[in-house]
């Protein structure tokens, strides 16, 4: 009976792992097959044909798209953390009038449907002359990352011991020195966690990237993959799409494997965003 339960347990574990991994595995297998090979189904890799990988970088500016994604996501993370850390100190550790109202507002913004700001954001970005530029995307993506960065950092900030801050005040520190010299070093792990989440959110963002860019050179990876087309309008280049998908997914998987503990901590700390 006990052995049976054990076998059932492991069967379930394997089933879940297979379900989680199979789509990516299948994408890898498909990415090595090209032409008419794709019209037969293969469960195992047969040969390592890299022509799809060559094609994805040759037929469109995919390298440029990746660079765009890195630039946008990197800037968004830096800006969110930079703005968020001081705000988190204020929200997490200082009792001031209107604190909880403002914090609830910030949380509410992180639940905004993106489409609700689309028209206004479009106008704003055009007014700033940022349409079809990376700074435009950076600005738009901040709407997604800044509120939850503030929120998650605030929950981490609250957990830091009060006495350390008080010791610093007795030592003559100003609030700014407390943030810079005492809390910033202590918040480094939390900042890494939050930064990772912000990076993933920005890296995966699609609606703004689709709407606020026009030319292929300015697109980030998600719209680039979504809009990949083949030589004919009727046939999608599945092999190339899978190759592109694998290329952008591998760094994310590496991040997850390396930082899974931090990511889980961040997800559960703020319980924000999926």
């Amino acid at each position: 009976m006990k052995r049976l339960a054990r076998a059932g347990f492991w069967l379930l574990v394997i089933a879940i792992a297979l379900f989680a991994l199979f789509p990516f595995y299948y994408a890898v297998v498909s990415s090595f097959r090209s032409g008419s090979d794709l019209f037969t189904i293969a469960y195992r890799p047969e040969r390592f044909d890299l022509s799809n990988y060559v094609a994805v970088f040759e037929r469109q500016p995919f390298g440029r798209n990746i660079l765009n994604s890195v630039l946008v996501s990197g800037s968004v993370v830096a800006l969110s953390l930079g703005l968020g850390i001081t705000a988190a100190y204020a929200f997490g550790r200082i009792a001031f009038r209107g604190r909880s109202l403002l914090l609830m507002t910030i949380l509410a913004v992180s639940m905004f449907p993106q489409v609700a700001v689309l028209a206004g954001m479009f106008e704003l970005i055009r007014a700033f002359g940022l349409y079809n530029t990376l700074p435009g995307l950076i600005l738009a993506n901040l709407m997604l990352t800044l509120p939850f960065t503030v929120w998650v950092l605030t929950t981490f900030m609250r957990e830091l011991p009060k006495e350390i801050e008080e010791a610093a005040f007795v030592d003559g520190a100003t609030p700014w020195i407390v943030v810079r010299r005492v809390f910033l070093p202590l918040m480094a792990p939390a900042a890494v966690t939050t930064g990772l989440l912000a990076f993933i959110v920005s890296w995966n963002e699609f609606l703004f990237a689709l709407t606020f860019t026009l030319t292929n050179e300015r697109r980030t990876v998600p719209p680039a993959i979504a809009l990949m087309s083949g030589s004919t309008a009727y046939e999608l280049p599945w092999g190339t799409i899978m190759a592109g998908s694998v290329v952008v997914t591998i760094p994310i998987i590496a991040l997850v494997l390396v930082f899974q503990r931090k990511i889980v901590a961040g997800l559960t700390a703020g319980a924000v965003k999926g």
Partner: peptide
């Protein structure tokens, strides 16, 4: 735990494309 995080981290567009291909009516 890392394995189940992978689907969450993959860009939605990419997952949609992967599944689109897996759900292709002919192939």
């Amino acid at each position: 735990r890392a394995i189940i995080l992978i689907p969450w981290a993959i860009p939605t567009i990419v997952s949609a494309k992967m599944w689109n291909w897996m759900l292709h009516d002919q192939f």
